[in-house]
Amino acid sequence: MQSLILTTTTRLLAALLLMFSVYALLRGHNLPGGGFIGGLIGATAFILYTIATSVDEAQAALRVDPSNLAMAGLGVAALGGIGAGFAGDPFFTGQWLFLFRDGDSYVPLSTVLVFDIGVYMAVFGGILTLVFALEQEI
C-alpha cells in the first residue's frame, strides 16, 4: 500500500514510538510500563513501518532477524535470574545497585531491569516474527 501521508508520518511516529517504548521499559518496575508493554509499543513502531513500506524494508531497517532477537531476549531474561547466583541468593532474587546516590535521587540498576530488557527483546522480536511471517503470506 502506498500512501504519502502514512509514509511521511510513519517516519516521525516510528521514532517517537521507539523512544516511548524505551521510556516505558525503564520506568516499569514500580510504575505502569515494563518490558512487556515496552516491547509491544516498540513492535508497533515497526509494524507501522511495515504497513507504510514493506516487510523487506522493515526487515532492512531492523537489521537483525527478529526471531534471533526474541531468542536472545530469552537468554538475557535468564541472565537476569542467574545474576542472583553470584550473590548467593536463590534464582531470580532481585539484586540492586544504586549509583550516583545524592540525597533522595539515584540511578537504580538491578537484575530486575536486565530481566525486563530480556522480556522487551523477546516480546519485540516475537511479535515482529509473527507479523512479518503473516504479512509475507497474505
Binding site: F36, G126, L130, A133, L134, E137
Partner: peptide, 16 residues
C-alpha cells in the same frame, strides 16, 4: 498473554 500467543500461532497454522 499465553492465550494470545497460542491463538496467533494456531491462526497461522489454520491458515497454512
Amino acid at each position: 498473554v499465553i492465550g494470545f500467543g497460542l491463538l496467533a500461532f494456531t491462526l497461522a497454522l489454520v491458515y497454512r
